[in-house]
């Protein structure tokens, strides 16, 4: 009988008056790459920290790799790896010493081959005697991942692994992750970048401690009804305010340099938008219909969610 990698049933955790995780249910399969996304304070990090056993849950049932989180912790710790949001290795120890330490405390006896393999693969070998504090952001993150992998975990938790990492290193990092996935490791990660979330098998959108939707990225995108129009005009702020009041516009999402409009019906809606903006002296520089991104769907879902709660 195979157990899911993670089974969460009615999990709650509050910090004072704040319900960080609010009656959360979630099931993550083995061998899957799962992304938790959502705004700051949605409860992503709290969920991961509970799953790793760093903080105790207030209530609910959680099993990790088939073991009960509370009662069978000793079976879990050697099978999981955790990469925290901040760089958390010993800056005053070298790359070699860091990985040696993490291998030893995981009781890995023959870590030398595994270590060399990981270093070669992550291209860290030339820097092995360097202190961890002296590494660049990308290298630090790779070293941290190597330390997380040294004991061959079945399941790894990565909390915003690519935040603060340059684009090139980020691409490298994702290459490593997809190789890991092929080798059968289950990966659970959080990310603020939705383009990263789109590369995962499944995505869960969290908001206010609850899961709003869990599905494959392509299915989530299908949830969006209507047409998304990308609009670039000269006074984005004014346009945003005006368009919010237009009846045929289901939703307006501002992205700094552009506006995304969600129209129920493009043919009847768009001419109206054009005429209203024109009457208010706002010039449309360009417009095109785009396929909805995860971002569009999530913003839309969260706005609906807000309406529901009020």
């Amino acid at each position: 009988m195979t157990y899911p990698a993670i089974h969460i049933d009615n999990l709650t955790k509050s910090f004072g008056p704040v319900n960080a995780v609010d009656h959360l249910d979630l099931r993550i399969n083995r061998g899957e790459m799962f992304a938790l996304v959502g705004p700051d304070g949605a409860g992503k990090t709290t969920t991961i920290r509970i799953l790793c056993g760093i903080i105790p849950p207030d209530g609910g049932e959680v099993s990790v790799l088939g073991f009960d989180l509370r009662r069978e912790r000793q079976h879990i710790v050697n099978r999981i790896g955790y990469l925290s949001q901040r760089f958390s290795l010993y800056g005053d120890l070298s790359i070699d010493e860091n990985i040696e330490f993490f291998a030893e405390i995981h009781n890995v006896r023959d870590y030398k081959n595994r270590r060399d393999e990981l270093f070669d693969y992550m291209r860290l070998t030339p820097f092995r005697s360097r202190y961890a504090a002296q590494l660049s952001g990308g290298m630090k993150q790779k070293l941290a991942l190597a330390c997380t992998l040294i004991h061959k975990p079945e399941l790894i938790f990565l909390d915003e692994p690519t935040t603060g990492v340059d684009p090139v290193s980020r691409r490298d990092f994702w290459q490593i992750l997809s190789d890991l996935l092929k080798s059968g490791i289950t990966i659970v990660l959080t990310t603020p970048y939705l383009d990263e979330a789109e590369r995962c098998n499944r995505v869960g959108l969290m908001n206010n401690g609850t899961m709003m939707v869990v599905d494959q990225p392509k299915n989530i995108k299908k949830m969006m009804q209507g047409t998304v129009v990308e609009l670039i005009c000269d006074n984005i702020r004014a346009a945003y305010k005006i368009l919010k009041e237009v009846e045929k516009v289901k939703e307006v999402q501002a992205f700094g340099d552009r506006i995304n409009l969600i129209l129920e019906d493009y043919d009847s809606g768009f001419p109206k938008v054009e005429s209203i903006l024109k009457s208010r002296n706002i010039t449309i520089e360009s417009s095109r219909t785009v396929t909805p991104s995860l971002e569009n769907v999530f913003i839309s879902l969260m706005q609906e969610g807000k309406v529901d709660t009020t």
Partner: peptide, 11 residues
């Protein structure tokens, strides 16, 4: 520095 958390997630 966050290593404490890292130690908690070890045996």
């Amino acid at each position: 520095i966050g290593t404490y958390e890292q130690l908690v997630v070890t045996p």
